[in-house]
Every structure is written in C-alpha cells, then in structure tokens.
C-alpha cells in the first residue's frame, strides 16, 4: 500500500557491482517505503538475482559504486549476518540443504540470533515450539517438517514454503523473495503467496524478484520495475506486468535503446 508519509525502508542510489570483474549492476536506483510491495521483473541475466544477493550481503559480489541505505543505516557496511539481524531477509531461489541439522534447531538458532540482537533473552524451547507451530499453520506445513534435516530431500515447493516459514518467524522489515514462484505448481504457489500476503503489513516492505507475471495474480504489487542490463528501465504499477506478459520485454528494451 502506497503512503507518501511512510518511512523509507530501503534506498538504493546509483548502485554498481561486479562479480569476477564482470559488471552486473550498472547504476541502479530503487526507493522502497514501509507498507509497499515491489516487483522486479526482467529477463535472465538482467541482474535481478544479483541485486537480491547484494542486498543480503553475498561475499562473491563486489560493490564498485553507489549507496544502499536500510532504515537510514549504511547497509553495505554490514556483514550478511548483521543485515539479517537488523531485518533484511532473503528467501533463496535455491535454498541450501543442510543434512544433519534439523529444521527446528536451525530455526531456533536463527530466531535466537535476532532476539540477542534486539537485546531480548533467548526463547524458551517450549515457547518456541508453540511459536513455530502457529507459523506452520499459515503455510499449511506438516509438523514433521521440523524434525527433518534443513531442506534435506525437500521438494521444490517444500523448500519455498520453508523459506517463507523462516520469514514468518524472523518478521523482517524487508523481505526479498528471489523467484519464490519458480518451479511451483499452482497449489503451492497459492500457499506461498497467501503466506507472503499474511506477512506483509504497513511496517514492512516486500521485494519480489520474478520472471513470471503469474505470481502477481496472487500478490498485488504497488510497483513493478523492469530490469535490463543492470538497471531499472521502467517503473509502473500492476498494469505494467500485464503488458509485459502480453507483449514480452522487447518493446521496453527497444524503447531504452532509442
């Protein structure tokens, strides 16, 4: 929901970045305020996944210029774990499997790092069990999920739901969802989308990175940005996504070139 008076959550200015010497982001600007849902669309290689990884602090990417402020603080100055504790959450396109560590243990360790960061005490394991179970319902997940190794042998849909479960527990200020819809059938997509909708509120913001307009049938964005060659070429509302679906990306790329 757009509200001009909302505080700014994320402010990206003229961001440039590279990996192994190859420039990927070439001057990206983005302003996200509390309560807003932004969708970033674009063809493969446009830099949208890179943007989400850079915001979360992936060490493989080198920022070469520009600034990123998160809630008024310099985000680029913080290691990945501090960004997470401060309220940046990245739902991975390809979540890692960690056999040997149960999902429940992983969630609790992660939750407690946030408690510690906020100066709260670590949660009692029994209270945590209750908290997790309430979140499981939101995502229609079976409690047996918790005793399995993190993402070990999970189907594509289970992995994505597990990412949203983590987001539900950590209650971030900025949720970055990197292709949370890829590989999902329509039923799984509905569950994931309703989870995201339930978590979005007037105090936080969501950044959806996606290839497909289909996701936006279930999560209504306030802004749709089209990325190409490391920049945002065009910004519009939901109608832009529908236009992209109908006409493809070429007209925007041509428009930018001319």
């Amino acid at each position: 929901m757009i509200n001009a008076n909302s505080p700014t959550i994320l402010s990206v200015k003229n961001l440039t970045a590279e990996i192994d010497g190859n420039p990927i982001l070439k001057g990206l600007n983005l302003e996200v305020k509390a309560g807003e849902i932004h969708a970033i669309m674009g063809i493969n290689g446009s830099g949208k996944s890179t943007l989400s990884k850079i915001l979360a602090g992936h060490p493989a990417y080198k920022v070469t210029g520009g600034t990123v402020e998160f809630m008024g603080k310099d985000l680029l100055d913080m290691p990945a774990e501090d960004r997470a504790r401060s309220g940046v959450f990245l739902a991975f396109q390809y979540p890692m499997a960690i056999p040997g560590v149960t999902n429940l243990d992983f969630l609790r360790v992660s939750y407690n790092t946030k408690c510690k960061h906020e100066g709260r005490e670590e949660i009692d394991p029994f209270d945590f069990d209750e908290l997790v179970e309430s979140k499981l319902e939101l995502l229609k997940m079976d409690p047996s999920f918790l005793s399995r190794g993190v993402n070990e042998g999970f189907s594509g849909g289970e992995k994505k739901r597990n990412e949203i479960l983590q987001m539900a527990l950590l209650e971030p200020k900025l949720g970055i969802l990197d292709e949370i819809d890829s590989g999902l059938d329509i039923d799984a997509l509905r569950v994931v989308a309703s989870g995201v909708n339930a978590l979005a509120n007037t105090d936080n913001a969501m950044l959806l990175v996606t290839h497909y307009q289909r996701l936006l049938d279930y999560i209504t964005p306030d802004y749709v940005h089209v990325m190409a060659d490391g920049r945002i070429l065009q910004t519009g509302d939901k109608a832009l996504a529908l236009e992209l679906e109908a006409k493809g990306y070429d007209w925007i790329l041509e428009g930018a070139a001319s």
Partner: peptide, 16 residues
Amino acid sequence: LEEDEVFYLQSRGIDA
C-alpha cells in the same frame, strides 16, 4: 565448505 552454504546461514543471522 561451500561459500553459498555459509552465506545461507549468515543470511539467517548466524555469524560466519
């Protein structure tokens, strides 16, 4: 240890 695995945990607030 894969850098991506470590990053996944860091992105959940766990230090390196």
